[in-house]
Lab assay of single mutants.
Amino acid sequence: MAIVADHLGLSWTELARELNFSVDEINQIRVENPNSLISQSFMLLKKWVTRDGKNATTDALTSVLTKINRIDIVTLLE
Rank of each mutant, 00 (worst) to 15 (best):
T50H: 14
P34W: 01
I3P: 06
L19Y: 01
E18M: 07
I68K: 04
D52G: 04
H7D: 02
N35V: 06
K54Y: 10
V31L: 15
D59C: 13
N27V: 06
V64L: 15
Q40E: 01
D72Q: 03
A16Q: 03
I26E: 02
V49D: 06
E14Y: 06
L15Q: 03
I3R: 07
G53Y: 00
N35C: 08
N69M: 04
L15V: 12
T66E: 09
T50R: 11
F42H: 15
D6P: 08
S63C: 11
T50E: 13
D6L: 07
L45F: 04
S63Y: 13
V74I: 06
L44H: 03
M43D: 14
A2F: 13
Q28H: 09
I26R: 05
D59K: 14
L44S: 01
T62L: 12
D24Q: 15
S63D: 14
I73G: 00
L37K: 09
T66N: 11
E32H: 06
T58L: 13
R17P: 01
R70T: 01
W48H: 03
K67V: 08
Q40C: 10
D72M: 03
R51P: 03
S11G: 08
I68C: 06
L61S: 04
Q40I: 04
I38R: 15
D59P: 12
D52W: 01
A2M: 09
M43P: 01
T57Y: 10
I38H: 09
P34E: 08
A5M: 00
T62E: 07
V4G: 01
T57K: 03
M43H: 14
V64Y: 09
E32K: 06
K46Y: 04
G9T: 00
S11R: 00
N69V: 01
S39A: 14
D24M: 06
F21P: 03
L19G: 00
I29R: 02
P34G: 07
T50Y: 13
T13D: 07
F21G: 04
I68H: 01
T62F: 09
K47G: 07
D52I: 08
L76Y: 05
V23N: 15
L10R: 13
S36G: 08
E18T: 06
L61A: 03
V64F: 15
V64R: 07
A56Y: 07
I73E: 00
T66H: 13
F21A: 02
G53S: 07
S22C: 14
L19V: 04
K47Y: 06
N69K: 11
L44Q: 03
M1I: 07
L37M: 13
L8G: 00
L76N: 08
A60N: 15
E18C: 05
D24A: 11
L8C: 02
I68P: 07
V64P: 14
E14H: 10
V64A: 11
I71R: 13
E14G: 06
R17L: 12
L45H: 06
I3K: 08
K67P: 04
V49Y: 14
L10N: 10
A2N: 15
N27L: 06
F42D: 15
V23W: 12
L15K: 02
E14Q: 13
W48M: 04
A56G: 04
I73F: 01
H7M: 10
L76R: 14
V49P: 00
D6K: 15
Q28N: 09
I38K: 14
N55L: 13
L77A: 02
L19R: 02
R51T: 00
N33P: 02
M1V: 10
Q28Y: 07
I38D: 08
N27Y: 10
A60P: 00
L45V: 04
A5C: 07
A16S: 01
N55M: 12
D72Y: 04
K46R: 13
A2I: 11
G9N: 12
Q28P: 04
T57R: 05
T62M: 15
I73W: 02
Q28S: 11
I71M: 14
I71K: 14
I3V: 12
W12A: 02
R51D: 04
V31T: 14
L15A: 09
T66Y: 13
E18A: 09
V49F: 10
L8T: 01
I73P: 02
D72A: 03
S63V: 12
S36L: 00
A16K: 01
R17A: 13
N35M: 08
T57A: 09
T13W: 03
L19K: 01
L77F: 05
L19W: 05
T58N: 09
N20L: 09
R17C: 11
K46A: 09
T66C: 09
N69C: 05
L37T: 13
V49S: 13
S41E: 01
N33V: 10
K47V: 05
K46S: 13
N69G: 15
W12L: 02
R30W: 06
R70D: 03
S63P: 10
I71Y: 15
I29A: 03
I29T: 03
E32V: 07
N35S: 09
L19D: 00
V31W: 10
F42K: 15
V74Y: 05
I3N: 06
P34H: 08
L45M: 09
E18Q: 06
I29K: 01
F42A: 14
S36F: 03
E78L: 07
V4E: 00
S11W: 00
L61K: 03
Q40W: 03
W12T: 00
K46P: 01
V64I: 08
A60D: 04
V64H: 15
E32D: 14
T57F: 06
L77K: 04
S39M: 12
K67G: 05
V4C: 07
D52F: 03
Q40H: 04
V23F: 10
L76Q: 14
G53R: 07
N20G: 11
L77T: 06
L37W: 06
A2S: 15
W48V: 01
G9R: 05
L45E: 02
E18R: 00
E25Y: 02
V74S: 04
K54T: 10
A16M: 00
S36W: 05
K47I: 04
A2Y: 13
S39W: 06
G9K: 05
F21R: 01
T57L: 02
L45T: 06
V49E: 15
H7A: 11
F42Y: 14
E14D: 12
L76C: 12
R70Q: 01
D6F: 04
D52L: 01
N35F: 05
V23I: 12
N20W: 01
E25A: 06
L44G: 01
T50A: 15
L77R: 01
